[in-house]
């Protein structure tokens, strides 16, 4: 699963280095530190750009739409989504907005419930991966030495584990799995790239003098990491989380689709799995698999586009203006 990691400059401050004639473009930050004529703080500047970058607006809008749908869907269409209440295999109509399955289930109801579970997997799986990745990345990057070597080894091992094979084995042992288990699995296997990236950033920030200054102020290691280094990388961490979130959704959908998903509950991937299992393609029941497919593509795509857009916002060098 290749993801476009946030650019390394995501939170490199565009601060001009000392006055030795380093040729930088003045204007973003005053050269030589003259009093800043612009009224905006950095946070204000980021918000200004974020709300004006097309990519961010488009991406966030799409996600918002699906999120709202996931939240209010169960209110619009209350009841059990798997209930057999409609005509068999009916195409979309005024009564059944997304049509029905071959068994007469309301696809729209299934859809909005699945959206919720998809977001849950994304948040939980992505969240777990983010926590592990950050912990490993920060510790390895800050401490260096043999701790770094050990953590690198662990990262490499997890990276090369064939997750599919692992999942097959797990599936054989866990006959009943829920969405949470799936999220845990994804969380525990998709963190290596994040750890690597965070380690690299931490490494580079660690060599900055303000870390030394904190050490000389008697501040302990952990507080330095969370007090000085992590805030400096906050945009990078944010972008990493977005990518992990999107990645988790995509992985979950893939696993569901090939039948290694949860045994209970529903998700967009499971809908597609069902559709294929019950020959929706051959029977021409396009309304069964197109909505979930489009939704997955749209959500994950929107997350990645937002990531790219925010990357431009955080890293002024990528801006086109």
């Amino acid at each position: 699963m290749t993801t476009r990691a946030p650019s390394a400059g995501a939170q490199t401050p565009d601060v001009v280095q000392g006055p030795q004639g380093v040729p930088t473009v003045p204007g973003a930050v005053p050269v030589g530190g003259r009093p800043d004529p612009r009224p905006m703080s950095r946070r204000g500047e980021i918000l200004y750009f974020a709300l004006r970058t097309k990519k961010v607006i488009i991406g966030l809008t799409i996600i918002a739409v699906f999120l709202v749908l996931a939240l209010i869907g169960p209110i619009i269409r209350p009841g059990d989504p798997d209930a057999l209440i409609g005509p068999l295999g009916a195409s979309p109509s005024a009564d059944w907005w997304f049509g029905t399955t071959s068994f007469g289930q309301d696809i729209f109801a299934q859809f909005v419930y699945s959206l919720g579970s998809t977001f849950l997997v994304g948040a939980l799986g992505g969240g777990i991966a983010a926590i592990i990745g950050m912990t490993v990345g920060f510790v390895a990057g800050y401490r260096g030495g043999w701790i770094d070597e050990v953590l690198n080894m662990i990262t490499n091992v997890v990276l090369v584990i064939p997750t599919l094979a692992l999942l097959l084995v797990a599936a054989a042992y866990l006959s009943a799995r829920g969405v949470v288990v799936e999220a845990l699995f994804i969380g525990f296997t998709s963190w290596p790239w994040a750890a690597r990236a965070i380690r690299a950033q931490t490494f580079s920030l660690r060599s900055r003098e303000f870390v030394n200054l904190a050490r000389m102020s008697g501040v302990k290691g952990l507080r330095i990491v969370f007090g000085e280094i992590a805030p400096n990388m906050s945009s990078y961490l944010f972008l990493t989380f977005i990518l992990l979130f999107g990645g988790a959704i995509l992985i979950a959908a893939t696993l569901d689709f090939i039948g290694l998903g949860p045994t209970s509950g529903s998700s967009l991937g499971l809908m597609m799995y069902d559709a294929v299992a019950w020959s929706a393609l051959q029977l021409g029941l396009w309304w069964w698999f197109i909505p979930p497919g489009v939704a997955i593509t749209a959500i994950v795509g929107a997350l990645y586009i937002t990531n790219v857009g925010l990357d431009e916002v955080f890293n002024p060098k990528l801006r086109n203006t």
């Binding site: 000392g18 040729p23 030589g32």
Partner: peptide, 12 residues
């Protein structure tokens, strides 16, 4: 000149 005086700009 000092930094920001324009000497690099002129040269470039």
């Amino acid at each position: 000149g000092e930094s920001g005086c324009g000497k690099s700009t002129l040269g470039n």
